[in-house]
Structure formats: C-alpha cells, structure tokens
Amino acid sequence: MIYFDRVTKVYNGNAVALEDVTLSIDPGEFVSIVGHSGAGKSTLLKLLLVEDYPTEGAVYFHSSEIHSLRKHELTAYRQRVGTIFQDFRLLPHKTAYENIAFAMEAAGRSDEEIAADVPHALSLVDLEDKMWNFPHELSGGEKQRVAIARAIVNQPDVIIADEPTGNLDPINTYEVVQILKKINDLGTTVLLTTHNKGVIDSLGKRVVTMDRGRIVRDDATGRYVL
C-alpha cells in the first residue's frame, strides 16, 4: 500500500537525511520504525505526509505517486491518512470536540455525521467528559488521545504516529499504545516511530531499524536492537 522506491533526501546539497531507502508496507500492517535521532525517521514520515519532497526516488500510496499529486488530490490523500505527533498539534483555539469536528468538516462530512461521530470517537479514547475543554485545559495524555480521536474519525487507511509517546509518562504511553493496537486490530495500517524500547518489545510486530539515513534491519516480529 505504501512504497518507498529508492528514496534519497539531501538537505542543502550535502546533509544526507535518507539514502536509497526502499520500503514496502502492506495494508493492515503495524510497522514500527526505530533509530537514533538523525537516523532519518522523521524525514521518512515528512515525505510520506508530503511536507517535503524527495531528492531522488518516489513514494507511492496505492498506485499513485504522492509527490506529483495535484492540490485537491493531495487534500483527498491527506484525508485518508491520520496523523499523530509527539507535540499533539491540536488547534489551540478549538475545543476537543471542535478539533475532531474540524477534520470531518475538512473532509466535507455533513453536520449530522459530525454530531454522531465526534462523541463516538471521543468515547473510543475515553474522553467524553472533556469534550468541551480547550487543549490547554487537558493533560498531555488527554491531548494525545484527542489527537488520536481526530486521526481516526475519518476512518483513514493508515495512521502515521510520529513518536506519539515521546512526551508521555509510562501509564499514558501504555494507554496510547493500546489504542493504536486496537486501531490496527480493526484493520487500519499503523506506522509508528518511537525511541521507546518497552513499546517496541511489547508490540511484537514488524520493526524497521534505521541508521544514518539507511534501513539496516527489517524484522517481521522484531525487538528494539540498537
């Protein structure tokens, strides 16, 4: 479903962030990408989110090359990809409800669908009682759960989670990973980057290890080896 075809990314002509990376991800997989800081994990996700463009090679989603999508096609593509970040990236002037509703509005869903689906998504992450709170009134774990609810509300094909547990304590980390697992069990592809050894070891899923812009290991049921 996702295919990186010999992708190289060079910043400013000499800083090589990714070098000749080829990676294939099938539907329904739960893939963790691990590596030291600067190994190229974030660059990989940035390319996948079309926040940046590859220097060489191409990235495919299903059969389309995502970096040559037109503006409206790109918008449609992003609606099929849910994103979760270490720094949550919620809209600070919107309540938890409105943050999730925004993703649905952006996808052109009707008011009735929004009124029905938003509380449902919030109940999946166990946050119905904080529906009308603004992000600054929520704890880190709660913010991340709102972000997860936002990521899944449009029933995307794939969830991209960029170090989602980086700012969370062990209990919240555990909860977030459980939610991601649940999402994956329901059929959504999950792509996770993390530094957390415990998370990787407890998952028992495919692990891709990166180092200095290259993929150095790719294990079907991997452990955190660095």
Binding site: H72, T75, Y77, R89, L90, F102, E105, A106, N154
Partner: peptide, 16 residues
C-alpha cells in the same frame, strides 16, 4: 501559522 500547518495535515483544502 502552526494551526494552518495542522489544518493542512488534517486534509483541509486551501480554500477551507
């Protein structure tokens, strides 16, 4: 500007 970046990632069209 950060909000605008988030809106783009969530799949909102430029016009929206």
């Amino acid at each position: 500007r950060d909000e605008i970046a988030v809106m783009r990632l969530v799949g909102a069209s430029f016009a929206y």
